[in-house]
Write a protein that binds this DNA or RNA. Structure first.
Length: 655
DNA sequence: AGGTTTACT
């Protein structure tokens, strides 16, 4: 409030100047005459902000229907509401996991594609909507791919429905082909691209061994030889970014005395938001920013004033190995599409230059596009969702790009062993339909749904919420030496899950849900608040299923309560095994773990209690291979016999 | 003895 008289720089062009304005009539005509329209244009062309307003004014909301837009709901919705001149949640609203800012008056609704898919569970033909805009479809995320497949089916049943797919140039044809009807007619693409400035691309004449070193050298060459303009360097991860910044800092004293200042800045998702903001601050006279960024700067975040781009040619990509069931995170050569997108970041305000730290022939041999997520992910969650939508034959579902058969088989095996699918590969009732409905990863959903039979429903609700935070429970501000003892205060011998339970209980009782208390105990306050929300949401799901969620005073988690003669902690560990039997391992004498088949060496993640403790058999929630090691996280001790007791069909399939 | 691209239900 005290700052109400400061100036805020305008981030946005007046609507009339946006490239889309010139194409308004063409767009509305195509949308009126064709069921599917593909809009090609860069971020910033006004697609997401203007198009929904055009549609609304053209009468697409007349009979009480809504326009859905699947794009960064919170930020874009606020802007459109402002342009329309309404309060957020009135004509323009948005909906994300824990927030529904819509009302009976809402006509334009921004929501995530995941949420829209969930709405289809209740309303399979999405009858509330007259137009559905699927934004940034070229990014080929798992959920937008599945959504497009579902929409293709819905369109057959709803001739009046309109779908708008927004995409970058490179792949627009793929969407046209995908949606082409029996007549195979063309002309559904509307190109609204604004003029970008030319970007001069430079390659290395010979490959280099150490691209980081070469990147730094290039930064200093640009700084010495080129006119003003900021530099954006694409690297693969936090580690590299931090090293790069040190390297620049080390060499700054070597600059001539009269040289402009050079300011290195990091940008990656894990960076606290306050620190991310520095990269957006305009450079002052006589300084040049060098931003070292991950892929976040390729599409998600746009920084004005970039004139030079340095591209290391690699990106860290997630993949899933269907044979081992292990997820990997490895540096992979970028695709040509990615490299083009990166280069384009240099030409937003004036002509720019892009330096690729590889040879031109290396570029030629890169894959044209990045492999879509659907071809490298664990498909169990989406297969469940499709089944819940009544799409039973997964192999025959019309995917934009079909996933490999091994991924489907692996997912079906797991779902069957969890009891979500029957011998006819149909969703079981009620277990399968409920696992599909709960917004949790299937193994965790199974734990939660079987918790009443282990008399630990309240505890599993908490554990499910806490593990959903995916390792963001602990806050590290600076000194790591103080962090460890702080964690140990909450430690429970049996493992990480019970420790997490302990942390949550302490937060809501002793900690009084207070941020200062979190700081004292090295806990991430925002994550803990989120855990409370997730827990409430999960509880509501269970209520809807008619389960008894009345929570009698549960008391302290570390206290051993007895239920039917079994210690509470044992019930919880058994319950966890009933969902995570497929994630089992045994500790070897050297403190590392082996998978059940003995084939893979696993390491407890340094944030796990089991990092330096003894155990025999364990289950774990997360497994990921990075670089040369495979880490497991959220690890809990179990008895070997429980694996067969709860996961017999899984181990039967495997042997 | 040591760590994860970015989105999200």
């Amino acid at each position: 409030m005290a700052d109400s008289d400061t100036f805020i720089p305008s981030l946005h062009k007046p609507a009339a100047l946006l490239p889309i304005a010139r194409h308004k009539d063409a767009l509305l005509y195509t949308i009126e005459t064709k069921q599917v329209t593909i809009v090609v244009g860069q971020t910033g062309s006004g697609k997401t902000t203007q198009l929904p307003q055009y549609l609304e004014r053209a009468g697409y909301c007349n009979d009480g229907k809504l326009i859905a837009v699947t794009q960064a709901p919170t930020t874009v919705a606020a802007r459109v509401a402002q342009e329309v001149g309404c309060q957020l949640g009135q004509q323009v609203g948005y909906s994300i996991r824990f927030e529904d800012v819509t009302s009976a008056a809402t006509k334009i609704k921004f929501l995530t594609d995941g949420l829209l898919l969930r709405e289809a569970l209740v309303d399979p033909l999405l009858t509330r909507y007259s137009v559905i805009v699927v934004d940034e479809a070229h990014e080929r995320s798992l959920s937008s791919d599945v959504l497009l497949g579902v929409l293709k089916k819905v369109l057959k049943r709803r001739p009046e429905l309109r779908v708008v797919v927004s995409s970058a140039t490179l792949v627009a044809d793929e969407f046209v082909r995908f949606f082409a009807g029996e007549d195979g007619e063309e002309g559904r693409i509307v190109n609204i691209e604004g003029r970008a400035f030319p970007v001069d691309v430079h390659y290395l004449s010979a490959a280099v061994e150490d691209y980081l070193e070469r990147a730094i050298k290039t930064v200093f060459e640009i700084h010495a030889d080129e006119p003003e303009g900021d530099v954006l360097v694409f690297l693969t991860g936090r580690d590299e970014i931090e090293r790069a910044i040190e390297m620049v800092a080390d060499r700054l004293p070597g600059l001539p005395k009269d040289a402009d200042a050079l300011v290195p800045l990091p940008l990656y998702a894990g960076l606290p938001t306050e620190q991310q903001m520095y990269v957006f601050e305009p450079t002052s006279e006589g300084t040049r920013k060098v931003i070292f960024a991950t892929n976040i700067a390729e599409a998600s975040v746009t920084i004005e004033g970039i004139v030079f781009v340095i591209d290391c040619g690699f990106v860290k990509l997630r993949a899933y190995n269907p044979t081992t069931g292990i997820e990997t995170l490895t540096a992979t050569p970028v695709s040509q599409a990615s490299a083009t997108q990166r280069a384009g970041r240099a030409g937003r305000t004036k002509p720019g230059k892009c330096y690729r730290l590889y040879t031109e022939s290396a570029f030629e041999s890169l894959p044209e596009t990045t492999i879509p997520e659907i071809q490298r992910s664990n498909l169990a969650p989406i297969i469940l969702q499709l089944k819940a939508l009544g799409i039973d034959n997964i192999a025959r579902f019309d995917f934009l790009t079909p996933p490999p058969a091994e991924l489907i088989v692996r997912a079906l095996e797991l779902l069957y062993s969890l009891g979500a699918l029957d011998d006819y590969v149909k969703l079981t009732k009620p277990l399968g339909t409920r696992i599909a409905e709960i917004a949790l990863e299937p193994m965790l959903a199974k734990c939660l749904l079987s918790s009443p039979s282990f008399s630990c429903l309240s505890e599993m609700l908490t554990i499910a919420a806490m593990t959903s935070l995916q390792g963001n429970v602990w806050f590290s501000h600076g000194s790591k030496k103080q962090e460890e003892p702080a964690r140990r205060k909450f430690a429970v011998e049996e493992g990480d899950h019970l420790t997490l339970l302990n942390v949550y209980q302490a937060f809501v009782t002793k900690g009084k849900r207070d941020s200062k208390w979190c700081q004292q105990h090295y806990l991430n306050f925002r994550s803990m608040i989120r855990a409370v929300s997730i827990r409430n949401q999960l509880k509501r799901y269970l209520e809807r299923f008619g389960m008894d969620v009345s929570e009698s005073l549960t008391g302290d988690a570390s206290a051993v309560l007895r239920a039917g003669g079994v210690p509470k902690e044992e019930s919880i560990r058994r319950c966890l095994t009933s969902g995570y039997f497929a994630h089992a391992a045994r500790m070897a004498p050297d403190g590392t773990f082996r998978t059940v088949d003995g084939g893979t060496v696993l390491h407890a993640h340094p944030s796990s209690l089991m990092f330096n403790r003894n155990a025999d058999w364990v289950i774990f929630t997360e497994i990921m291979e990075t670089g040369d090691k495979t880490y497991i996280r959220d690890v809990t001790k179990i008895e070997k016999s429980w694996l067969l007791e709860y996961g017999s069909s899984f181990y039967h399939i495997k042997s």
